[in-house]
Design a protein around this nucleic acid. Structure first.
Ligand code: NAD
Ligand code: NAD
Lengths: 226, 226
DNA sequence: CCGACTTTGTGAATGCGTTCACGAACGCGT
DNA sequence: ACGCGTTCGTGAACGCATTCACAAAGTCGG
């Protein structure tokens, strides 16, 4: 009860529905485009079009951050960028360690989107002795044995796994042990993490198979004549 | 009415909830692992553990494909693989065209997971004259001008976009015009597609920003002491 | 052949997310 | 100053997905 007074400003962060959180980055991108195009304000309808959703969703999502719109006008673009960035924690720079500097790892290491979104690659790590020491995207590949050190000294809180599936759980455990509390997994395997560690995954094979399902469905129902 | 009799076998395909479809590939992967480990049958509980979900979800999902389990025993692994593959349309080989053979495109082109899951890369396409003609992963990079031909002669129904965001909508339109009906987009931008074209996206920046949100949330609530 | 045990398949309950719909609030033109 | 048109913010309705919980259906040892 007594602590409620001190919470109100930041308490909003805590109960933003996951589905809304996932759309905030998309709004942010859309807003950048609108700002570049010279828009000072934008209506929920305008932002909705730019973000590929409907306007009710935009308003509901933004309402979780606070009341920053002006009725009859819309939202001020700059202000909204600021509030969304705040909610997503993008006002600080997060450090990332990338484990597995193979085929995909090279592409990720060289990806400009990391830096431009405020994420710093604090280290590249691989288990292959032949890869350790190689310079990739301005960084030297370190040994997996040095993972804990890279995490600690680099202030790393996010780990990206781009190793083969067979190594992913081991790497995941090592990341968690080193103190990483958020993990993005590109390996096609289900990972176990303890409570308190956030896990997200990107799985190309799954995406393709979902597309396959829809192609198949179209061809089956289409063949009948409807 | 007369055609209903002919429908019953395949009609199941049509009303599988999207959320279930998205899990079927994960079950498939889990079942491969179980088969390799020598399991002949598996219970919903066992499959649930392997797939990282709960058993009720597994049973509900599988029930959409038909009644292939045996009460008191579980599901026969091989049979289940067969039925899921059928439902996902993986009994046929789908051809894919990859547009944008840059940093990420190279990694995707060389990705073994394409072929091993039954997807054939029918062509690599790029707009940069310097890239056209280059050999990547056993294929020669073709010009974007030849896209329609690659799609038609290759029997391509799935397109993968790995170009910069600015070119993605144009490429998307070209793919659709060429006859592609499913698209997987890696560029960080919202794409418009006509009805009947399936669109999915993979967005690294969005994933990282979602993780950022959770890191931020942890650090804010953690600082208070609870 | 039977009874105890296991596990499926599925209605019912619950929860979450989306969409609708409208009152309240604001800017602007007159 | 005031009314008009626009747009936000949000309760309520709706729909989809998840989870619960259990009867039905099978196995298997004796
Ligand atoms: N290449 C793609 O386009 C692509 C697409 C989607 C998913 N993936 C997945 O991403 C992962 C990496 O793919 P890739 O094509 O880069 O494979 P890769 O074999 O080229 O690279 C894997 C790298 O991980 C390293 N590694 C292996 N075990 C390790 C360990 N225990 N600790 C640290 N590093 C270790 C290897 O030395 C290698 O450098 C795979 O799981 C793959 O399925 C790849
Ligand atoms: N590299 C990564 O790890 C990574 C990760 C996530 C997302 N992405 C996204 O994937 C896309 C590609 O990234 P990248 O790092 O490979 O960039 P890149 O610049 O290395 O490659 C882009 C390629 O697309 C080609 N291209 C440009 N316009 C084209 C057109 N109209 N038609 C055909 N080809 C065209 C270019 O010639 C180039 O070869 C970007 O949108 C990027 O944001 C990349």
């Amino acid at each position: 009860m007594s602590e409620q007074g001190g919470f109100t400003a930041s308490a909003r962060h805590r109960d933003i529905p996951e589905a809304s959180v996932a759309r905030l980055p998309v709004y942010l991108r859309a807003l950048s485009g609108l700002a570049d195009a010279g828009h000072v304000t934008v209506s929920s309808e305008g932002l909705a079009t730019a973000a590929g959703v409907n306007s009710a969703k935009v308003r509901k999502d933004l309402s979780h951050l606070g009341s920053y719109g002006t009725r009859g006008v819309g939202y001020e673009v700059d202000e909204l960028v600021h509030h969304i960035s705040n909610a997503l924690g993008l006002t600080q720079r997060w450090s990332v360690v990338l484990v597995g500097v193979g085929n995909l790892g090279h592409a990720l290491a060289g990806y400009a989107g990391f830096a431009s979104r405020g994420f710093r690659i604090a280290g590249l790590v691989d288990a292959d002795p032949a890869r350790v020491g190689e310079r990739v995207a301005g960084l030297t590949v370190r040994s997996i044995d040095e993972l804990a050190e890279v995490v600690t000294t680099g202030g790393v809180s996010i780990g990206v796994i781009a190793t083969p599936a067979g190594a992913a759980q081991v790497v995941c455990d090592q990341l968690v042990a080193a103190g990483v509390t958020s993990i993005l997994n590109f390996a096609p395997t289900v990972l176990q993490v303890p409570d308190g560690v956030e896990l997200r995954k990107v799985d190309l094979a799954v995406e393709l198979q979902i597309l396959s399902f829809h192609e198949h469905r179209k061809s089956v129902s289409g063949a009948v004549g409807a």
